[in-house]
Simulated assay, not measured.
Amino acid sequence: MNVLLVYAHPEPRSLNGSLRNFAIKRLEQAGHEVQVSDLYAMHWKSALDAQDYPARPADARFNPAADSAHAFENGLQREDIELEQRKLLWADAVILQFPLWWFSMPAIMKGWVERVYAYGFAYGVGEHSDARWGDRYGEGTLAGKRAMLIVTAGGWASHYGPRGINGPIDDILFPIQHGTLYYPGFDVLPPFVSYRTDRIDEAAFAALCDALGKRLDTLFSVEPIPFRPQNSGDYVIPTLALRSDIAPGKVGFAAHVAESIGSAVE
């Protein structure tokens, strides 16, 4: 199978760098073909701006969605954007690996998403009407592919527990897993999260690699997070609110998961 690893950490000798190297080796040993987008090494341009669309009139008002759609439809995208889109189409599974910085991904990875997820590629896809609100949240260009996060966090696991001060890790990662990954169609796997990363010694690293290896071995077999598909009948269109008889009494992120699953965070 084809696996794309999108990696964001500025220091190759970091824990993240070591985990990346381990992941590549483990996947290749299992017979997978692996491509890596090392965003810092690539000097990836983070900001989505008018420079991404050189064919647009210089004096025109910049409209990110409209300019993105025009460039995508007419083959006028920048080469770096188109190359990453090709990698996404090539991949059977995509892994986003990053340190948790200020409760989200590093800016360079957010910029990768904003620039690569063009209108007509990752959003603005499908029919938009009173009966259907596009191909998204379980459908779309990337449907049928799998995606997983590998995340490192400096805090203790308890800090990210159900009653932890930082909030539950599943809630913190929800905008990435449900929004960035499920929105364009990925089947999203439970994340692999490591904690207290500044306290990892050789023994802890060996145990961490063992746990990560087991997760990678099940990349194509583990059950994805059961997010509710948008167009399956659970949501009222066009309001896109859950029907009153679906998950009654539940609000917030948890309402959009069809059933509770055991935490696979390690």
Rank of each mutant, 00 (worst) to 15 (best):
A47Q: 15
A204N: 02
A66S: 11
G111W: 05
A8E: 00
D170F: 01
R199L: 14
P99L: 01
G213T: 02
A211V: 07
W112Q: 01
P184D: 05
L4R: 10
D92V: 03
T180N: 08
L181V: 01
F174D: 02
S46V: 14
V193P: 00
I200K: 01
P99D: 08
V193I: 11
W102K: 03
P54Y: 05
E139P: 10
S14W: 02
G161V: 00
W133M: 14
I237G: 11
M148A: 09
A241C: 03
F98M: 07
A118S: 06
L100F: 05
N63D: 15
R26L: 05
G111C: 12
L48I: 12
L212C: 02
P54E: 04
G262W: 03
P57S: 13
A157D: 02
A143T: 11
A204G: 10
I165C: 11
E114D: 01
M42P: 05
F227W: 14
A65M: 12
N63T: 14
T239E: 14
T180E: 04
S104A: 11
A47D: 14
W101E: 01
I150F: 12
H159D: 15
I95R: 04
S244W: 00
V222T: 07
R78T: 13
A203V: 09
A66D: 15
V151A: 06
G144C: 08
S232Q: 15
G155R: 12
V94R: 04
L15A: 05
I200W: 00
I165H: 14
L216R: 04
F62A: 04
G111E: 04
G17S: 06
A118V: 01
N74W: 06
D245R: 03
F72I: 06
N63M: 12
A65R: 10
F205R: 12
E11L: 07
V236D: 13
S232W: 11
R243P: 03
L5M: 10
A147E: 01
W133Y: 13
G154H: 03
P54R: 09
F72H: 13
H128S: 05
A58K: 15
A207D: 15
P175K: 09
